[in-house]
């Protein structure tokens, strides 16, 4: 019974994720990518950072490491998988979710709090919310602009796979509230199975009241199985 937080060379939010999960009473450990997933893995976090120095494209190299095949198989078997920031980019690069995360519209690295509207509760990460709830999490990325081909996007909408959208404090989804130019303000999506999800904002950085809010806790609790 453990949540595997997969560390690549260049991951830098792995310890934050571990600490947050432990604070929530969820058993978790950091797993070096070359060591493979532990046999008792019950959840997987692909943490933020700059795996492989963002060479080629953010997440491109990590997406093609052997451990990610194990992650795919675990996701197919129903294990909750959460890709955060660089972890989201990795999951998109390997096709665990549709679309791609690429250079922000501003062409700059952006580090700021954002509001998100919950778009579906049909996932372990949002099951404790109501659709339309507004939460606040920080973003910290240079390549967070969600791009997706229009036919694929239509399917995402049809299948209720959009997890969060960037919005203002009142929950209004607008261009002004879109920090990076993402397609239709999409901040996170679900994979083929509802137990696999990615998002660019950082729930693990919003779990302590002393550090600007606790809206990330309910998302991470989705890993408790």
């Amino acid at each position: 019974m453990t949540v595997a937080v997969v560390r690549f060379g260049g991951s830098n939010c792995d310890r934050d994720a571990l600490r947050s999960l432990q604070d929530l009473g969820i058993d978790a450990e950091i797993v070096w990518y070359e060591d493979g997933l532990p046999a008792d893995t019950t959840g997987i976090v692909l943490p933020g950072g700059f795996s492989y120095g963002d060479y080629l494209r953010a997440g491109a190299m990590a997406a093609r490491t052997p451990i990610m095949q194990d992650v795919r198989e675990a996701a197919d078997d129903g294990t909750p998988v959460l890709g955060i920031c660089n972890g989201a980019q990795i999951c998109a690069e390997m096709g665990l979710v549709d679309g791609a995360f690429t250079v922000n519209e501003s062409a700059r690295f952006q580090c700021e709090p954002v509001h998100l509207r919950v778009e579906t509760t049909d996932s372990p990460f949002t099951s404790s919310f109501e659709v339309g709830d507004v939460i606040e999490l920080p973003i910290a990325h240079g390549e967070g602009r969600y791009e997706v081909q229009s036919g694929v996007y239509d399917d995402l909408i049809e299948e209720d796979k959009v997890l969060f959208r960037y919005c203002d404090a009142d929950g209004e989804v607008s261009d002004e509230a879109n920090p990076n130019g993402s397609k239709d303000n999409v901040a996170g999506v679900l994979g083929d199975c509802d137990n696999g999800a990615v998002l660019m904002p950082h729930p693990e950085r919003a779990t302590l009241p002393e550090l600007g809010g606790t809206d990330g806790r309910a998302i991470l609790e989705g890993l408790s199985g």
């Binding site: 549709d98 791609a100 791009e147 997706v148 694929v152």
Partner: peptide, 9 residues
Amino acid sequence: ERLLANPTI
């Protein structure tokens, strides 16, 4: 196909 390009973009 497998690495250098991302077919989405």
